[in-house]
Design a protein around this nucleic acid. Sequence first.
DNA 1: GGCATATTCAACCAAATGGTTGACGATTAT
DNA 2: ATAATCGTCAACCATTTGGTTGAATATGCC
Lengths: 122, 122
Amino acid sequence: MVDDYPGSGFNADMTEALDTVFAALADPTRRAILSMLLEDDMAVTDVAEPFDISLAAISKHLGILTKAGLISQEKRGRVKWCKLEPDALRSASVWMQGFGQFEPVNLEAFERFLERELDDGA
Amino acid sequence: MVDDYPGSGFNADMTEALDTVFAALADPTRRAILSMLLEDDMAVTDVAEPFDISLAAISKHLGILTKAGLISQEKRGRVKWCKLEPDALRSASVWMQGFGQFEPVNLEAFERFLERELDDGA
DNA sequence: GGCATATTCAACCAAATGGTTGACGATTAT
DNA sequence: ATAATCGTCAACCATTTGGTTGAATATGCC
């Protein structure tokens, strides 16, 4: 095993998912968009309305959120509806919980447990 | 209020904290480093050992993790010790929980795991 | 003192990121 | 048919990012 460091137990897909999700969340505009979609599905133009940047820029942000799986986009007529997909946050959440309140237990075993959980696509 | 969009309720500090934490987590090398530090505090050189990139690159990664508050570094003698600071994940975790309550992992399975762990330990 | 070890700094580089503008295809309205 | 609206695309730009190398700065060891 060449890449023998912690985290290499995750398969490449999981690593990539975490990459794209965390990167998507690292931008305040994108986080604001997600918050907006928490209240309701929205058309691209309406998403863009409160921001001071171009529609094209918003379109790019929505593309990044879509690629990360955090939203889905469905075109109905000439308007494209954006819908929050909060389940995409799950992998990131699971990863982060590994750093929390679990001191007392055997960490190696816990990591193996986590890997099984993630492999199950939970 | 000029910037009237969801998320503008957070003050600038919170936004910046989320920016830096999520950005820090978006890199697989940095996530691997955090996982390593979960097991024990480490010196910079030892952190670098399993990776195929230069020590200077690792030093930069550690600087980013430090700026995000995810680790702390204390120089003792000529070696600088890196220590995980998992509390820095809290703001990010709280933000994410706003999008639905994903339990950390499959809770039943997790509890079974915990029981096994505790039995083994006793 | 002199040498090895630990870590950072500085300069540089290629690629990615977040933004712009103007043109364009698709759909709806007049 | 023509015009307006919705959204993306393409080209471009400045800045950031993740990496390199070589020199510099501590600190510890003989």
